[in-house]
């Protein structure tokens, strides 16, 4: 029987790459909690997913150009993410939203990215771009993640009220004359957050640590700020649990973290649902 210390603390104590992964996950949990909550509140989860894959072709071009350097991968991903976000806004701005179009978008982006990477790289490179390498995060990548995360959190803090109001009553925000393109700023923040996550979780999974903790936190019916805090907490818990799971079980770490987040979502949904059913029976407010 392993002691709790050996189970939980030792992997981080002895291995530098586990510590780096933990710090990266902490930074990402912060931005993902904030951005993910806003995505869920705006009912834009699918858009987040599409943008996650939109990062792919650009990152692939970055890879072709410079190999697996984090800076070039991110720059490429940022460029194609912004391009797709702008394109999607153009399309949805003209007519009612088209989820079939969005889905087509992401399938094409994903395939294009895989083809581009496979053209010059190996299968390992493809896997790395798709699922990320949270255990191979070096100092430079760590600094990059920390800087991007800080910028995102600061921008959301500064624009908190218009972003929050725009999510529930956009006509009011426009009618009172808020002229800044908050919608576009928000999409840009989502792309930034996805690019920050890209290195750790890859293009397929980056949306997971963003949406799952936020969706789990949303179940508990808290206010916006409290939801963000809870989502961050959930994200962090999922990261620690996932990293330990992958260490002890010798499992891929990114998917393990996303699975842990999914488990938290399942528990949250089940617990709050059964409370809603149970509460009237024992005479409490649901």
């Amino acid at each position: 029987m392993m002691s709790a210390h050996a189970l939980i603390v030792e992997p981080f104590e002895t291995l530098a790459f586990m510590r780096a992964a933990l710090v990266a996950c902490l930074a990402l949990a912060l931005t993902n909690g904030v951005i993910g909550t806003l995505l869920v509140l705006r009912r834009m989860s699918l858009d987040g997913d599409v943008l996650g894959h939109a990062v792919m072709p650009g990152a692939a071009i970055g890879f072709l150009y410079a190999g697996s350097s984090p800076a070039w991968l991110s720059l490429g991903g940022l460029a194609s993410g912004f391009a797709v976000a702008a394109l999607a806004r153009l399309i949805t701005g003209e007519r009612a939203r088209h989820d079939a179009g969005l889905v087509a978008f992401y399938l094409v982006a994903l395939s294009l990215g895989v083809v581009l990477v496979a053209w010059r790289g190996s299968n390992v490179d493809v896997m790395r771009v798709l699922f990320g390498t949270v255990l191979a995060i070096d100092r430079r990548a760590l600094v990059q993640i920390a800087v991007v995360s800080s910028v995102i959190v600061l921008v959301v803090a500064a624009l908190y009220r218009p972003l929050a109001v725009g999510a529930f009553d956009p006509a009011f925000l426009r009618a009172v004359g808020a002229r800044a393109p908050y919608e576009a700023v928000f999409l840009a923040l989502v792309v930034l957050a996805l690019v920050a996550s890209f290195q750790a979780f890859g293009t397929l999974l980056a949306v997971g640590p963003m949406l799952l903790p936020a969706a789990a936190a949303r179940c508990w019916g808290l206010g916006v700020a409290a939801s963000m805090a809870l989502a961050t907490g959930f994200g962090l818990a999922a990261s620690v649990a996932g990293l330990l799971l992958s260490y002890h079980g010798n499992l891929p770490s990114g998917p393990a973290i996303v699975l842990a987040a999914g488990l938290l979502f399942g528990i949250s949904a089940a617990a709050t649902n059964s409370w809603r059913r149970l509460a009237p029976l024992i005479g409490r407010d649901a």
Partner: peptide
């Protein structure tokens, strides 16, 4: 009048009631 002098009540359906607002 300027926007500051304008108040607009959209249809109720335009408001997201699930939003956690008091």
């Amino acid at each position: 009048a300027a926007r500051q002098q304008l108040a607009y009540l959209p249809q109720l359906a335009a408001i997201d009631l699930d939003y956690p607002l008091t």
